[in-house]
Amino acid sequence: MMKTITISVLLAAMALLAVSPAEAAYRPTDSEIDPAMLKVDEKKILGNKIDIDLVFLDETGKEFTWKEKAGRAHVLVMSYFTCEGACPAFSADLADILEKTQALGRVKAGKDYDVITVSFDKNDTPKTATHFKHMLDLPAQLSENWSFASLKYPRQLKKFTSGLDFRYFWSFTDRMFYHPNVYYFISPEGRVVRVLHSSKVEPNDMQLALIDSFFNKLQPSQVITMAISFCYSYNYKEGKYGINYPLFFAMGSLFIGIGAFGVGAFIVRKRGKPKENQI
């Protein structure tokens, strides 16, 4: 309900802006955007399942649904392909972080996960997608496993974005979309596992979020990967991963008893055999 209200208020605000451009011009840009409005409520959407029947077109014009994507974890980015400012930079950032994450050595694009950018602009087509991808000039390995998709039937857009708590609007003054810059981590079953805000993401967070997204598919050979993920715990307030301190306290405490026994045994040995008269 809240969402509907927010959106209708926004629509009204947009309409107001449209009819009174003069007034809008005097507004400082930042007051137009309520930052809270652009925040994705992570807790609310965790576990949401992407509509697996929606038909997408990738940058080559090929049709696909999420059903075919199932079985592989995904980093999902929402963007629009005619964007000239923030979006390409944002995508380039992601490419950069993913490269650095790969350098950490535990997760690999194409093997453990794929990247998908979905346009929320109803005017985008495979053509604009190709242009956008070309402009990004991605490294070869990422490029192969990163698709740029638009919806085949743009009127279904709401169906896709609402489950992601993704809200955006077109600013007539700035001639651009305002939208949250977040990475969604989608499990092989097509469910939202984690949402990270792009401004805070370190390679380590990226790696841990990726591991989280395919955790149930970890193979026995990836036991170190699993151990790494146990060492960290996700902090909802900060939207980052932190060290899982209790685990280390507990592991450390394992040595207390054994150490105490060592001391005891040492003392007894040093003391030597009890003398007869002690008995």
Binding site: Y236, K237, P246, G252, S253
Partner: peptide, 26 residues
């Protein structure tokens, strides 16, 4: 000692405002 460690952290969480087991704070 592992049990002792776990309940100690519980104690710190309850009385000293730490967040070892508070899901929102990691």
């Amino acid at each position: 000692p592992v049990l002792a460690a776990a309940v100690t952290l519980l104690l710190l969480d309850k009385y000293f405002g730490t967040a070892f087991f508070v899901p929102d704070s990691g």
